[in-house]
């Protein structure tokens, strides 16, 4: 399912990023690689998310949260 559907406080694992090569690589550089644990810290409907990845807080725009597939 897309990350956009994950509720705040839940922990999920990244499966794949459904995006172009450039964005995939950029996200991978920031630690968003398959298998990594993502915790949704705060989510807003149609707004950006705050997630925790490898101990960092990151803001992900609404568009991206729909492209990140998690389980």
């Amino acid at each position: 399912m897309p990350l956009a559907m994950v509720k705040a406080g839940q922990r999920v694992h990244l499966v794949a990023v459904d995006a172009g090569r450039g964005l995939q690589a950029r996200l991978a550089d920031m630690g968003l690689v398959p298998g990594v644990e993502i915790e949704v810290v705060s989510n807003a409907l149609h707004g950006p998310f705050i997630v925790a990845v490898k101990g960092c807080r990151m803001v992900l725009g609404h568009g991206i949260t729909q492209k990140i597939m998690v389980a």
Binding site: L23, M30, V59, L60, G63
Partner: peptide, 11 residues
């Protein structure tokens, strides 16, 4: 298309 918004939130 606008570039996806990814940004670190530093402590």
């Amino acid at each position: 298309e606008s570039v996806p918004f990814v940004m670190e939130l530093p402590p």
